[in-house]
Computed example of a mutant assay.
Amino acid sequence: MRITIKYEAAWQNSFLDGSNNEPLPKDGRGFVGSMTNLKKLNSEGKYSNFIQREISHDTVMGVLNRLIGDQRKLYQAKNCPNYFFAELENSITFENIHDHSKPINKEIVYIRNITGSTDQNSFTGMIKGNHPVFNSAYSSEFWGVLWLSLDQLFCFFEENSYSVKLEEYILLDPLIILARSNDLKELKPIDSYESIGKTVEYLKGIFPDQNYVESSGKINPIRLYAAALYIQLDRLSKRFDMKDACNRRGSNQYVYGYSKRGFNGPRDFMKNFITGEEKTIWGNPYLLKEKRKGEGEVTSLLTKANGVLEIHLDIAQEKALQLKDMIEAAGVSSFYMGKKGLAYVDGLRI
């Protein structure tokens, strides 16, 4: 038996992680098509969230189930005791033939965000530069830890009475602190040596639930500066009223924009010092820019393909006639091939 499927503009990329051939997670499959996710590298140094999909055996089985009127996920159909193709899958092969008159297209598409997510790097409204955290008696000592060198930072951890002095030319306001935080976040990881080892042990004693060493064995300097802010907050609390120096949730207190092991980004920091709200993300183009050795900067876009899918079923004639009757009874005129695109049955022979 041979079933011929024609398809046009079938998307060859996926914006979701996981697979349709497995149970759906409680919160659904993760969206990986945002600009932030697309730029993430996996442990092998590759952009694993730019997912390319090709027609596979699972695709073919999904199409066949759709043609007989079964609209369940493939894993759900397979788990059913009356799964029609249970003993036929090994007898099914396919051939995917691209239409050369309508070549594979690379297109920019704009993915519309409807979840209400906010931009991690933007904010709205006027900036409140007169916030007490920037112009109080403790401000220079508090934020000054961000301007310490690494050697000075180690001394700061060792000495409870370490005096932090901020240079007079540094004027404190939200944008200055934001810029300094971003600079520290960009510092490259450093190898562990004696002074750092002592510091890590010291921090483990204060923040036992935090980890300051990466899986590579190196340490990101921003983690040490973040911990220093929390330690300085505690030290200054013995001399000043620090209620305006942090957010409070119950008995816990949080330095603006910082966790105990890192900087959370411009959005989480600036939302405390603006008259507006966090900036909503309306969507983003689906593309990936990467630098490849010998090629330079390469831009990858959404791929759309046109072609013919030939499905061959090496089954008994009686089973083939039964399948033909089921397809005709279901009367499926057109369907998606993958995420989008148009597909339909062009021929059916026994």
Rank of each mutant, 00 (worst) to 15 (best):
D209H: 12
Y212E: 00
E214I: 02
E214C: 10
S216V: 00
K218Y: 07
K218Q: 07
I219L: 01
I219H: 00
N220H: 12
P221H: 00
P221K: 00
I222V: 12
Y225N: 00
A226Y: 01
A227G: 02
A227D: 03
A228I: 01
L229P: 02
L229M: 04
Y230T: 03
I231D: 01
Q232L: 03
D234L: 05
R235L: 03
L236T: 02
K238P: 02
R239G: 04
F240Y: 14
F240A: 04
M242P: 00
A245F: 02
A245T: 05
A245W: 01
C246S: 11
N247H: 08
N247A: 10
R248M: 14
R248C: 13
R249E: 13
N252L: 12
N252Q: 13
Y254N: 02
G257M: 07
Y258M: 09
K260S: 03
K260Q: 09
R261G: 10
R261N: 15
R261K: 14
G262P: 02
G262C: 03
G262Y: 01
F263E: 01
F263K: 04
F263D: 00
N264F: 02
G265T: 01
G265P: 07
P266C: 06
P266Y: 04
R267Q: 14
R267M: 15
R267K: 13
D268P: 06
F269T: 11
M270I: 14
M270T: 11
M270K: 05
M270E: 11
K271T: 03
F273R: 06
F273T: 12
T275W: 02
E277S: 15
E278R: 09
K279A: 15
T280I: 15
I281K: 10
W282P: 03
W282I: 10
G283W: 10
N284R: 11
N284F: 15
L287F: 13
L287G: 04
K289W: 08
E290G: 06
E290I: 08
G294T: 09
E295P: 06
E295G: 05
E295A: 15
G296N: 08
G296W: 01
G296I: 03
T299H: 03
T299F: 07
L301P: 04
L301S: 05
T303V: 14
K304W: 10
N306S: 14
N306G: 01
N306K: 07
G307R: 04
G307Q: 07
V308I: 15
V308Y: 03
V308A: 02
L309R: 05
E310W: 05
I311S: 06
I311M: 10
H312M: 08
D314G: 04
D314M: 09
I315S: 05
E318N: 13
K319F: 01
A320P: 07
L321Y: 05
D325L: 12
D325C: 08
M326L: 12
I327N: 07
E328C: 05
A329S: 11
A330S: 13
G331N: 15
V332L: 15
